[in-house]
Design a protein around this nucleic acid. Structure first.
Lengths: 340, 340
DNA sequence: CACTGGCACTCTGTCCGCGCGAGTGCCAGC
DNA sequence: GCTGGCACTCGCGCGGACAGAGTGCCAGTG
């Protein structure tokens, strides 16, 4: 019906205006700023319907209307066109990510870039270990009965782990161990690594058995445990700019960002298809994020995602632009990681 | 003189009260809360003198007095006794730092601990490379003409760097290279490493010369360049709690913390003696930090500092407690690093 | 039947004026 | 040199008035 169509136009206009002005938007202003072809009075009728359907609400009687979470949801799902990035922005992305020296460098550049493009808090998950493969395992003796295990993956990630050994170790053992480990694990997907430990034990020469058992246990632990420090966060200064959208205080949000685990769960729940995921307000199911939206997407080379990245900001954000930025950055990061 | 002595008592009382209440403190309240043995009128006279000397100021006529930067300075230098940590706090420190798995883990635990103890933003610098020694160098082939160089130091730090080679490399070369590098650099202080590169070139077999030259260059670059990502920051959520002390906005401060380089300079300028350094307000010589104080100290094993750590907070902070916490944490971290 | 203009109503944000209270500086007295 | 007293100065909070924005409803019109 033509009516429904126009009502959606009205909702879209409300979202756009509210996002850009941060003022509840009234019927008169809407009629002026948008070519809806009808008078304020008609818009008011539409607004009444939209309010009843739960898409908009008024902060208090006789202020303008403000989109609800549900309103933003509809906007994102049906009303917003993907906003292509400007040439300057594309160039900025390339320039920013080019010349990174290692994985950490790539990720910290990414997070800064994303924060700069979106003016929101940016979050990048470290590539998940289980999806990458072992490139090399290094063993370094730190003390007579203490080894440092260094794992290098094909995504350029370096993991380290101290291992206390049940027995003293001599130098030749270390070399043997290194050879043994690499022979067994080189090229293996980390997800499969745990299954290879029995093989490892079998092929180990008897005098190394106990040592290998300890190492194997530590290895599995390191690989299987997701760990906690898997998140790079940046652009928190942008929160100050949008502080007005978080009435109480920024504190819960800052805490959630530091907690990492909360945000990590959100960011890592991406599907592999490259679709941008948007969680709006209460959809986040975490109190600290009830006034916030999370825009995330998986990145990776080829078809499987290595991890997620995205932004966290107020529900009152420019979704089309931010979704485009998140997607574009993820694409570039995937490329870069595939090359290195 | 007895007068001067009492005036200092008054200043101390003002600082203490103001820090705990955040209200400008008046003569009457002072006389009630502290045993100064004189009447409010007398205190007023002292306050007038203190104000003239620039130690305190009044926000507006007929409000109480507030310490100036200079007042805090005097307080820190001459009026505050070191506040020993409670048993619970000491235990918390041990518990918190015990069981860390690697360097990054140690540092991120440290920063959380410090933030929790002081209720301020905590900052920890990565151990400076130049003061540590090479434990092992690992070379991994990533592509035909691309190597990943991994440096492991005796402080447990792992540095990685991609190197594009001028020539193709085969597998034996990699092994030779690894042996050669470790032979030359193992045990060397990183600060001296650059000087060893000529030796390296000399001992290299002719067919590896060009390769070694490239690697050597990358190595020096990695070691000498201080890099940017040398800072772990935590506890920014605490800023929200003290937002009232930063009238304009938290933004400049958050930006400075993200910028890292600013804070890094402050944190790294520690002397090796283990003295806690306090920079108050304008002393920081950076606009974003003009309302903030930085409490920092070097940490390390033995006599030489590996890096700095500290906190950033409003000038209105509890200096004695925070200084004690910073010092205690630095001491423990030094111990832990010496062990691993 | 849908849209429009008009109108009365409601509510918030803001401004002003006022009184209160806290705190000071000064002075005379001990 | 300290103290109590006193007049003075301001900032803050409260309440009322007011303007402005926005709404809902209603009657009129193509």
């Amino acid at each position: 019906m033509a009516h429904d169509e126009r009502r959606l136009q009205v909702l879209r206009a409300i979202v756009q205006d509210y996002v850009s002005t941060n003022d509840p938007v009234g019927s008169k202003a809407l009629a002026e700023r948008h070519d809806l072809g009808v008078s304020p009075a008609t818009i008011r009728n539409d607004m009444a319907v939209l309010e009843e359907q739960g898409y908009i609400t008024q902060p208090h009687t006789s202020a303008g209307r403000v989109p609800t979470d549900k309103g933003y949801r509809l906007f994102v799902d049906r009303l917003s066109a993907v906003k292509p990035l400007s040439v300057a922005e594309r160039r900025a992305i390339e320039r920013f990510l080019d010349g990174a020296l290692d994985l950490h460098d790539i990720l910290s550049r990414t997070v800064r870039l994303l924060a700069q493009l979106t003016h929101q808090v940016a979050v990048v998950q470290y590539p998940t270990l289980s999806r990458s493969a072992v490139r090399h395992l290094e063993v370094v003796q730190v003390a007579t009965a203490r080894l440092l295990l260094v794992l290098i993956t094909d995504t350029g990630r370096v993991e380290q782990r101290l291992v206390d050994c049940p027995v003293d170790v001599d130098r030749d053992d270390v070399a043997d161990l290194r050879a043994l480990l690499n022979q067994t694990f080189a090229g293996a997907k980390l997800a499969d690594a745990a299954g290879l430990v029995p093989d490892l034990l079998e092929t180990a020469p008897p005098h190394l058995r106990r040592l290998v058992a300890a190492i194997g246990a530590a290895l599995v632990e390191t690989l299987v445990e997701p760990g906690e420090d898997r998140l790079v966060v940046g652009g928190t200064a942008n929160l100050a700019r949008v502080a007005v959208d978080f009435p109480g205080s920024l504190r819960p949000l800052l805490e959630a960002l530091e907690e990492q685990v909360v945000v990590l769960r959100l960011i890592s729940e991406v599907d592999t298809g490259g679709t941008v995921l948007v969680r709006i307000g209460e959809e986040n199911a975490h109190e600290a994020l009830s006034g916030a939206s999370v825009v995330s997407v998986g990145y990776g080379s080829g078809d499987h995602a290595l991890g997620g990245l995205g932004i966290v900001g107020p529900t009152r954000m420019d979704y089309p632009t931010n979704m485009a930025a998140v997607r574009a950055v993820a694409r570039y990061v995937g490329q870069i990681l595939a090359e290195s």
